[in-house]
Simulated scan of single mutants.
Amino acid sequence: MTPAIQTSQLHKRYGRRTAVHALDLTVEPGTVFGLIGPNGAGKTTTLRMLLDIIRPSGGVARVLGSDPRRGGPALRRRIGFVPGDLRLEGRVTGRRLLDFYAQVSGPVAPGARDELAERLGLDLTRPVRTLSKGNKQKLGLVQAFMHKPELLVLDEPTSGLDPLVQREFLEMVRQARAAGQTVLLSSHVLSEIQQTADAVAVLSAGRIVAHGNVASLRLAAVRRLSVGLVDADPGILDVELRPLGQLSDLHVAAHPGGSVRVTATIEGDIDPVIKALARHRVSDLTVEEPDLEESVLRLYGASEEEGGRA
């Protein structure tokens, strides 16, 4: 089966700076592929090369079996795209704007546009220029999904959306996959990738430093710990917790009334940490997932440094 997206040694230079280095990427049809990494990693540059918005400096790309540079309008009609810097303006209503996009993208099934707008809570009768950032993002999502393209390319698609709309968007992605559509999703939100992606590539400084699924990349293994203890000795706690290899950024602070607050970053197995804390009286405990950028930098920063020296 021909991959939905395939690149070989794809790279992009801006003068002396290389934004994307020799990128080899394969996205299988009917899957959700997550492209993740910190700001400046090359995610948006990669997506723009795949869509022929910018031209690569070298290498080969195939999208739905075609060269993006030669696919023309016929290829673009098979793709739905939400850019990371979505800008929608004008006096026309959202409905009129979507009518225009339907003429460009190809046939839209009756009722599909209104159904998507209702799911996202978007009022199509309002002029585009009066819409908030979140509602403009909803409009961008409707135009990408409404003609049910073979390939959806979504660059930070939930920017500006409230949590309920984000949840509905994730359901739309899952339904697209079930219908056989392919989704290439660039995101800073780890939970989006965890809930939807079949495969993931981590970009750092323009290079793929890891690929696989989220569990195998250990992105969720970095967590922040905050725990309150009663009648505990800060010095003893520090001695007990300091040797644990899972902990970094450890801070033990005494507070008035005999309470102690412990904060740290956990990498890997949390069980030894919980067992050490269980020797004391715990008043509260919070374990939070850091943002995706921090996870990538913490786990794959060494790869970035090695790439910079290469």
Rank of each mutant, 00 (worst) to 15 (best):
Q137N: 12
D155N: 11
L51V: 09
D155L: 11
P83A: 10
V108L: 02
L217M: 14
L152H: 14
L64W: 09
L184Q: 09
T196Y: 00
I208R: 03
L190W: 11
T26F: 08
L203V: 06
T46Q: 00
G65K: 05
V287D: 07
G235M: 02
T158Y: 01
E118L: 14
R70Y: 04
V239G: 11
A178W: 02
P127H: 08
I208V: 12
I270G: 02
D67N: 14
S283N: 15
F100R: 09
M146H: 04
L141Q: 05
G94I: 03
L120D: 04
D284T: 04
L161D: 15
R76N: 15
A201H: 01
L250S: 02
E192K: 04
L116C: 07
A178C: 02
R281P: 10
L297Q: 12
E156I: 07
V287S: 06
R129Y: 09
E240A: 15
P234G: 08
D238T: 11
A4R: 14
A302H: 12
S259K: 10
D99C: 07
D114R: 12
R69T: 06
R13S: 03
A179E: 14
A112C: 05
S204F: 09
L161I: 13
A117E: 05
A310K: 04
G71N: 06
A278P: 10
A264K: 04
I79F: 00
R16L: 04
L120M: 06
E156A: 07
L250R: 01
I208L: 04
S226V: 12
P127T: 06
L164H: 13
S8L: 15
S303L: 09
G90H: 14
A220C: 05
G40L: 06
E118I: 09
R224D: 15
V252G: 06
I79T: 00
Q103A: 12
V296K: 09
G121F: 14
R17D: 03
I266S: 03
G134T: 07
L277M: 10
S259D: 15
V296N: 13
G72N: 04
T158L: 01
A102C: 00
R129D: 13
A210V: 07
S226G: 14
L225P: 05
R298Y: 12
L120P: 06
G245W: 07
V189Q: 10
R167E: 14
V108E: 03
R69Y: 00
V296E: 11
L229A: 09
N135Q: 04
A4I: 15
V63D: 13
K133S: 08
D24Y: 10
H147D: 04
V189I: 12
P234A: 10
V273P: 07
H188G: 06
Q246N: 11
N213T: 11
D114N: 13
